[in-house]
């Protein structure tokens, strides 16, 4: 693999791992605070699956850049993270959390399906393992969007507010860079922009069935994955404080 291709792949792997790591962190914040005991259990489960995926993906990163998964998670600053912004936003209310999960699960389902045939075999292998779990994630979040959308006026109102806030940010999932073209040509990683239609075909009918209106105004000037909100700083302060308190220690 030449250097340009390797760097492009690294960038994508880190993006995938960071998406999972950051979403896992947010979901784990519900543990002990969910609206039903059953959902404390469910959210902890999601968080573990996502953390597991992040760890495995960071293992692939390590093979390319030599940095351990813990170094990547605990000793990078916000500007070095490559997750999309809407995953780093605070967990919000239950409507926000479930809608975010749904929109992201739908995206991941498509991404994983495509990566199954990646010419980079280590990636195709790990994604084959993730896929089984992802089906359950999507089923869970799909059902929750439906229950809240078709529940009470309040639940619908909260869900709509969440959609208004995060919808413009979801476009970040489908951004592409120059280097991505290289990956796509080599069959390593699908062109993100090519997944947007398929994603919309999944989510738009469901959102409509759940009485939701997708915002039509597209005023958001989107930054790339290297740009973050201040919420990521806050999140990393939480996440990294013990590890950095004694960096010489083994934890």
């Amino acid at each position: 693999m030449n250097n340009a291709l390797k760097n492009a792949l690294l960038n994508r792997l880190i993006g995938m791992a960071d998406d999972e790591l950051i979403l896992s962190h947010r979901n784990a914040e519900w543990t002990g605070h969910a609206p039903l005991l059953e959902e404390d259990i469910a959210l902890a489960n999601l968080a573990q699956d996502e953390l597991g995926h992040a760890t495995v993906l960071l293992g692939l990163v390590e093979e390319l850049n030599g940095k351990t998964p813990d170094q990547m998670a605990y000793f990078r600053d916000a500007a070095e993270f490559r997750n999309v912004q809407f995953l780093e936003l605070p967990k919000g209310d239950w409507a926000f959390t479930m809608l975010r999960q749904y929109l992201f699960d739908a995206y991941e389902t498509i991404l994983y399906n495509r990566l199954l045939t990646s010419s980079y075999q280590p990636l195709a292998d790990v994604v084959a393992k993730f896929r089984g779990e992802e089906i359950y994630h999507l089923r869970h979040s799909h059902m929750w969007v439906e229950r809240l959308g078709l529940g009470t006026d309040e639940s619908l109102g909260r869900l709509q507010a969440a959609l208004d806030q995060m919808w413009p940010l979801t476009a970040q999932l489908f951004q592409v860079s120059e280097a991505d073209n290289l990956l796509s040509e080599e069959g390593v990683f699908p062109l993100a922009a090519d997944m947007a239609d398929e994603w919309q075909e999944i989510v738009l009918p469901h959102l409509a069935n759940c009485s939701l209106h997708v915002p039509t105004h597209a005023t958001m000037l989107l930054a790339g994955r290297e740009t973050h909100t201040h919420f990521l700083n806050d999140l990393l302060t939480d996440m990294q404080q013990v590890a950095r308190w004694d960096p010489s220690a083994e934890w």
């Binding site: 962190h25 784990a28 914040e29 543990t31 002990g32 005991l37 059953e38 404390d40 259990i41 902890a44 489960n45 968080a47 573990q48 953390l51 597991g52 992040a54 760890t55 960071l58 998964p69 813990d70 998670a73 605990y74 939480d238 996440m239 404080q241 013990v242 590890a243 934890w251």
Partner: peptide
């Protein structure tokens, strides 16, 4: 959980607290 200093410890702790919810149920 948000402050767990390694990915392994974080996984163990989430699983543990999840078990407690399960025991409660």
């Amino acid at each position: 959980i948000p402050h767990a200093p390694s990915l392994r410890r974080k996984m163990i702790l989430i699983a543990k607290v999840q078990d407690e919810a399960g025991h409660g149920q």
